[in-house]
Design a binder for these strands. Structure first.
Lengths: 351, 351
DNA sequence: TCGTTCATTTTGAACGTTCGAATTCTTCGG
DNA sequence: CCGAAGAATTCGAACGTTCAAAATGAACGA
């Protein structure tokens, strides 16, 4: 196997010029049909593939997006982000985009990586997974005109930044739906296990519970627990709830990890039928028959790519200058019902 | 912000030639110290970064490795591969390598992707995650001289292919250790829940159980169950085991998913203290206090990169021609003990 | 002072592609 | 059969880097 054929080799083989070969590949419309076929045949015969780096050098775009892989977490909740990355790779491929991954230690380090990848023209645009309260990365990216989109709202910004494109899922609505569903099926005292404030996502989800739980005063205080994410934490929190004088008759959790823990606690407390709803609809939830609120990841990814590249192309759009077009979108999650959400209520004995 | 500075801009600013700037970056040793400093200062001042594509075009290497993201699985077992990818990104970064990901539908599609990435000089080398019995990809990659390394042995090849570099973890030894550990702590009847044959990894792990369980005849038959991977499957299998006339007093599973299911079954059967050992030591195992056999992923990744790039550099070595150097390595896993493996035996009541 | 050797720096070309302008080929009305 | 307009193709240059070879400078012994 010698060296790869170049555009010149093809040109020679097809008796045309370099540029015509290039045209056949990039704008087939402008070349005469008979010529196009002849060239195409030569391409196939020689097995020619454009050299990506040469093309990028010339066109000054890499058709590559960069994503930082989050630090490993729980392994349950983390799975959402892994699924996100997976789907990103899938949909990027459909647009002829490549995906480059990297890891980083904290925001500063992440920006350093982004800078390197960007300055080297390795990557055209970035996808930020998750946003913090007053996220320092956003300002920097906008400032440095690095095209990006985030999966996550700009929490805590008074004035929405028109340069910042984002997609997010309306966790509040999702939780609200779940609570209402449980109450419609007879639950009176729906408890909440969530994360400590301040947490953009966490506070939002909790708000969904607050506005729909129909509880007041002491009940409202007692039936909400904030804890770090994790199976163990969920177990402990649920155990505490179940020991209350007036225990809950259903629990909604901010994550599947917490919900899995809660399920274990319920079983241990002899209340295997307690309806429990998780969040993210991870495969684990499906496996153990846990109801969960599903984020429409396919749509999230599709929207992110559309915001970055427009409806179809692979040309990066710079961060928007004004707010003519809405540079963001809030998607609605969906409750996936499984045994856990109506075990006790519909008289269905636990496993 | 105008265009990025080029090597020429730096050269002009530092009053030297293009090439000297290049040397400062690539072989600082050969340029006089005073000059080096002057150039370096100019680089810093202008914020110059080499244009990756230009460099790649010239040097004919991309310093990028490609990995296919496996189809989404269980979410528990899948987490291992996600962790693998994560660590790959980390260690690649340390060597100044980039990681490009892609997804594919089946082996043929994967090879098509590999071909595209490779022919376009987007990617220098590939990492295969997981290998099948008589994996069709390996022959193709060797045939087409695509540098690669696999995380997984060449199952079922009579003659080891000297062109094929691989790393793998000795699952048989891991399971053997776990069984011996359980027996040393008093277990007599250690059961096995694994995957249906033929499965390279699965058969190997089962072999570890067979050679150390100390069971014979009917016991040996009855105490081993083969089932697809998954929490539900593990639950059912364990439930069946526990209903045997002579039930096991410990269970070793081929995955954490199975083990999680087994744990649930044990609790449901009122045998919460039954020692259960999983495989892969996923975060879920840690979260629910499940003992598990841990694959040394850091070492796996480090070895894979070393096989591909040598001890330190970022120059891809072609697939080896002969078998002078051992182009593969088998690493030893480690049993991580948690409550689940000695709950019943050491008289420690379950949670 | 001169040639020699080694260290350091510079020069010209090349990597494979696409852009922009220029050229040639077709077609068609008069 | 000519000229013009449009379609199709070609040509020269450029993208930013590094390689290979050539040129320059410094150091040293004779």
């Amino acid at each position: 196997m010698g060296r790869m054929p170049t555009v010149d080799d093809v040109a020679q083989a097809a008796q045309v010029s370099r540029q015509t070969v290039s045209n056949v590949i990039n704008s087939p419309g402008i070349v005469r049909e008979t010529t196009r076929q002849r060239v195409q045949e030569a391409i196939d015969r020689l097995g020619y593939r454009p050299h990506a780096s040469a093309r990028r050098l010339r066109t000054r775009k890499s058709s590559t997006i960069g994503v930082r892989l989050d630090p490993l977490r729980d392994g349950i909740s983390g799975a959402v982000l892994d699924r996100f990355v997976h789907k990103l790779a899938e949909q990027a491929d459909a647009r002829d985009l490549r995906v480059m991954i990297f890891t980083a230690d904290g925001h500063a380090d992440e920006l350093a990586h982004i800078r390197r990848l960007r300055d080297g023209s390795d990557v055209d645009a970035f996808v930020l997974i998750g946003t913090d309260h007053g996220d320092s990365r956003i300002a920097w990216l906008v400032e440095n005109r690095v095209p990006f989109v985030s999966f996550g709202r700009p929490w805590g910004a008074e004035t929405p930044d028109p340069h910042h494109r984002w997609v997010d899922v309306d966790g509040r609505a999702g939780v609200r739906d779940a609570v209402q569903h449980l109450r419609a099926h007879g639950a009176d005292r729906v408890a909440w296990i969530g994360w400590p404030s301040p947490s953009g996502t966490g506070d939002e989800r909790r708000a969904g519970w607050e506005e729909s739980c129909g509880l007041e005063g002491a009940d409202r205080e007692n039936l909400a627990i904030a804890t770090e994410d994790g199976v163990t934490e969920g177990r402990l929190a649920a155990a505490a709830l179940l020991e209350l004088p007036a225990p809950p008759d259903a629990i909604v959790c901010a994550s599947d990890s917490l919900a899995l823990g809660a399920t274990m606690a319920a079983q241990a407390a002899g209340r295997a039928g307690l309806p429990i709803v998780g969040f993210d609809d991870t495969p684990v939830a499906a496996a153990v028959g846990l109801s969960s609120i599903e984020q429409p990841l396919d749509e999230v990814v599709a929207t992110a790519l559309t915001l970055l590249f427009g409806e179809h192309g692979d040309d990066v759009r710079p961060n928007p200058d004004s707010d003519e077009e809405p540079g963001h979108r809030l998607l609605v999650p969906r409750l996936v019902e499984r045994r856990s959400s109506h075990l006790a209520l519909d008289g269905n004995p636990g496993a």
